[in-house]
């Protein structure tokens, strides 16, 4: 095996690369399509499913979720929902580990798919509850086998309603069922 053969083969590989199409994705005109299980910067939150139990806040290793609730006064039975006054997620320190999503017992919080939340000021890097309410409901299928088995892809643009986002039995619950979920379980 002659001495320079390895070098020559390497140079041929590089030369052939000249003819290949470059793999660069020209951001911002083009964007790379993400995997459906990609844990992005947005969060998808279903207010109909959320009870204000703050499990997500307790599980967060960074402690960036701030939940302030008050008794809602709507259903005075046990197991009612709280009224959420504040639900802030601080994206600045979030590490997108998804433990909050794992923690939620009611499948109300899902990871999102965005990655373009860079802001000029650090104080802008907070997702408030209004933004969570208004954002498009395209959850990532990470830790959500019910969505993944259906072959749902958040990049396709279709939204998932709150009835289809949970891991309950095949029948989607009604809103009254959700309100009374603890009451009935007794």
């Amino acid at each position: 095996m002659p001495f320079g053969l390895g070098i020559a083969k390497g140079m041929m590989v590089t030369l052939r690369n000249l003819a290949r199409k470059p793999v660069t994705v020209q951001y911002p005109e083009q964007r790379v399509t993400q995997n459906p299980r990609f844990r992005g910067e947005d969060f998808v939150w279903y207010e109909e499913r959320c009870t204000g139990c703050a499990s997500c806040a307790k599980y967060c290793p960074q402690g960036i979720i701030k939940i302030v609730t008050s008794p809602s006064g709507e259903q005075t039975q046990e197991g009612e929902k709280y009224k959420l006054e504040t639900f802030d997620i601080e994206i600045a320190r979030c590490m997108f580990c998804g433990l909050c999503v794992e923690a939620c017992p009611y499948d109300a919080l899902h990871m999102g798919t965005g990655f373009e939340r860079a802001m000029p000021r650090k104080s802008d890097l907070v997702i408030t509850v209004d933004e969570l309410r208004a954002s498009a409901k395209r959850p990532s299928t990470w830790f959500r086998p019910q969505l993944q088995d259906r072959g749902y892809d958040p990049a396709s643009g279709e939204e998932v309603s709150w009835q289809d986002a949970g891991r309950e039995a095949t029948v989607a619950p009604t809103y009254d069922d959700m309100l009374k979920r603890w009451v009935e379980k007794r």
């Binding site: 690369n17 000249l18 199409k21 470059p22 793999v23 660069t24 020209q26």
Partner: peptide, 8 residues
């Protein structure tokens, strides 16, 4: 150099 490395 970029084209040698299949990038722009």
């Amino acid at each position: 150099l970029g084209r040698f490395q299949t990038r722009l």
